[in-house]
């Protein structure tokens, strides 16, 4: 095992009744990387990420998370989602899942639920607001009144509030206008530059690769070989 490994998964399987959504998938993620899972709708990308987060039942030979905080490998197979957050994993889920009746600020506060350091929380909230100034303007508004793009920003910001070492983003570009997609991906790179490892799920390879191309100035094909951005294409 590479000493930079953060997450190692061997032969992950997810079943919904008779339907096998994920079959024998192995993934390894190193500290500091952005890893992207690409595949068509229904290919099982979300199932993988939900299995890692402990939101669906799964089987695997190994599912280990090595926290950069103490370097100790911990098996996360079968653990509930709330335990993952404490280890340093967080997820911005598919469909954003903003809590519609809570304000922007309450959504963010909820993201920091496991933390007790009031100062650190308010610093991080300011940090999220600096990434997404639009959220600051709307911090007293209910989640349901935000536009799709703002909700997506809130979902990413909320996932950052637990100070995760591994940030998982499930289709952050879903339903966003192309310009917003650029913006969101730019911010994702910024978050990554500050030392967080990112696991990204995208449906449309072009989104990721093209946006990547703007930021990293390379073509899609080059990017596939770029150690910084690895794309794992998942067939059905």
């Amino acid at each position: 095992m590479d000493d930079r490994t953060m997450l190692k998964i061997e032969k992950l399987n997810v079943n919904y009744g008779a339907i096998q959504a994920v079959r024998d998938v192995s993934i390894s993620i190193n500290r500091g990387e952005i890893v992207t899972l690409i595949g068509a709708n229904g290919a099982g990308k979300s199932s993988i990420i939900r299995a890692i987060m402990g939101l669906v039942k799964s089987h695997s030979e190994e599912m280990t998370f090595i926290s950069p905080r103490d370097g100790k490998p911990v098996s996360i197979q079968g653990k509930p989602a709330e335990a993952h957050v404490k280890l340093g994993i967080s997820l911005s889920p598919e469909g954003r899942r903003i809590l519609p009746q809570l304000t922007v600020e309450e959504n963010l506060t909820l993201g920091a639920y496991i933390r007790d350091d009031a100062k650190g929380i308010s610093d991080d909230m300011e940090y999220v607001y600096s990434l997404f100034p639009r959220l600051k303007e709307r911090r007293k508004q209910k989640g349901s009144t935000l536009s799709g793009g703002e909700q997506q920003m809130l979902a990413v910001g909320r996932a950052l509030m637990s100070r995760p070492d591994l940030l998982m983003l499930d289709e952050p570009s879903l339903g966003l206008a192309p310009i917003l997609v650029d913006e969101v991906f730019g911010i994702i790179r910024e978050i990554n530059a500050q030392g967080r490892t990112i696991l990204l799920v995208e449906q449309n390879a072009f989104d990721v690769l093209e946006v990547g191309a703007v930021g990293l100035s390379g073509t899609g094909a080059e990017l596939l070989n770029d150690p910084k951005v690895r794309a794992a294409y998942l067939g059905g």
């Binding site: 709330e82 957050v85 404490k86 899942r97 809590l99 809570l102 506060t109 909820l110 639920y113 496991i114």
Partner: peptide
């Protein structure tokens, strides 16, 4: 905070769980 979590759960248990609650 527990009150916030309680309100959150009533909208979406799974998402609240993802927040570490």
């Amino acid at each position: 905070k527990p009150g916030l979590a309680m309100r959150a759960i009533s909208f979406d248990i799974e998402t609240t769980r993802m927040m570490g609650v």
